[in-house]
Amino acid sequence: MKGTYTTYTMNHIRLTLLFVFLAVFSHTASAQDFKSAAGVRLGYPFSVSYKTFITETNALEAYVGFRSYSGVANWISINGAYQVHNDIAELEGLQWYYGGGAGAQFWSYDFDASGSTTFSVSGYLGLQYTFADTPVTASIDWVPTYFFGSSSYGAFNSFGGGYGALAVRYVLGRP
């Protein structure tokens, strides 16, 4: 058991170092070809999403999601993220991005009609493709998330490495 925990911890340290490396050493300029887009994130949680660029490379994304755990518990989440986008020169319209964000999850427990609130901090690493002739953008990302908070059952602290989504959005404005 101890070896599994050590391997698990080392993998998280490596991922954290990768995010730090990307944040520090990626200063590639890129030009975004849309201002904002709205759509859905098909993942955990299933969400409606709005993304807007505040500069040519920096975007804010907000999304509201829902997740159910087999009739035992549900949550509604509100999340926000700051993302930095960089062009992949070999394919026009394709970008990679990284960033960070925070959220709140409002839990409902079916087995005793109680609820609680947890909070989260997340990292983002993804790819986004904007179609040239269609007002659609698609992205896929990985969103490792640390949850914290408390409920009537005690403290809640958990890391989830399996979060992320495939997002499809309709482009609302082009510069």
Rank of each mutant, 00 (worst) to 15 (best):
Ser47Lys: 05
Ile78Pro: 00
Trp142Glu: 07
Phe34Asp: 08
Lys2Tyr: 11
Ala138Val: 15
His85Tyr: 15
Asn157Asp: 14
Phe147Ile: 07
Asp33Ile: 06
Ala155Asp: 15
Ala37His: 06
Gly126Lys: 03
Ser36Tyr: 01
Tyr170Thr: 00
Tyr44Leu: 15
Lys51Met: 08
Glu56Ser: 10
Leu94Val: 03
Ser158Leu: 13
Ser77His: 04
Trp142His: 08
Tyr163Ser: 08
Val20Met: 14
Glu90Ser: 12
Lys35Tyr: 01
Tyr124Lys: 08
Val143Ala: 15
Pro135Phe: 06
Phe19Trp: 02
Thr4Val: 12
Gly43Ala: 12
Val136Ile: 15
Ser47Trp: 06
Val136Leu: 14
Tyr63Lys: 06
His12Gly: 10
Pro45Asp: 12
Phe106Met: 15
Gly3Met: 05
Asp141Phe: 09
Gly100Glu: 00
Leu172Asp: 06
Thr28Tyr: 10
Val121Pro: 00
Val72Ala: 14
Val64His: 02
Gly71Asp: 07
Leu172Met: 14
Gly80Pro: 01
Gly154Thr: 10
Ala81Gln: 06
Val20Cys: 12
Tyr8His: 04
Arg67His: 13
Asp141His: 10
Asn79His: 13
Asn11Met: 11
Thr145His: 13
Tyr44Ser: 12
Leu91Pro: 01
Ser150Arg: 00
Ala167Tyr: 02
Ser120Gln: 09
Leu17Gln: 08
Ala37Glu: 06
His12Asp: 07
Leu125Val: 06
Phe148Tyr: 15
Pro135Gln: 11
Ala59Phe: 11
Tyr163Pro: 00
Gly71Lys: 07
Gly99Leu: 03
Tyr44His: 07
Gln32Val: 08
Lys2Asp: 12
Ala102Pro: 00
Ser114Asn: 10
His12Leu: 15
Gly80Phe: 04
Gln105Cys: 02
Asn79Met: 09
Tyr50Ile: 05
Gly99Gln: 03
Phe106Val: 13
Lys51Tyr: 02
Ala138Leu: 15
Asn157Gln: 13
Gly149Thr: 01
Ala62Asp: 05
Ala113Trp: 00
Asn58Ala: 02
Arg41Cys: 02
His12Cys: 09
Leu166Met: 12
Asn79Arg: 08
Thr6Gly: 00
Ile76Asp: 11
Ser114Arg: 11
Ala38Thr: 09
Asn74Tyr: 14
Met10Ser: 12
Tyr63Asn: 14
Ser139Lys: 07
Phe156Pro: 02
Tyr82Val: 01
Gln32Glu: 12
Gly43Ser: 11
Ile76Pro: 07
Phe46Arg: 05
Tyr5Gly: 05
Ala104Leu: 11
Phe148Glu: 03
Gly126Thr: 03
Ser122Asp: 03
Val121Lys: 01
Ser36Phe: 01
Tyr124Ala: 10
Ile88Ser: 03
Ser150Phe: 01
Thr9Gly: 04
Thr145Asp: 14
Phe46Met: 14
Ala155Val: 12
His27Arg: 12
Gly99Cys: 03
Leu17Arg: 06
Gly93Asp: 10
Tyr5His: 08
Thr28Lys: 13
His85Arg: 07
Ile54Gly: 05
Glu56Gly: 08
Tyr69Gly: 08
Ala59Asp: 10
Val136Asn: 04
Glu92Trp: 00
Leu127Thr: 06
Val72Cys: 04
Tyr170Asn: 04
Asp110Arg: 01
Gly3Val: 03
Val20Tyr: 06
Tyr153Asn: 14
Tyr129Lys: 10
Val20Asn: 09
Ala132Asp: 14
Ser49Arg: 10
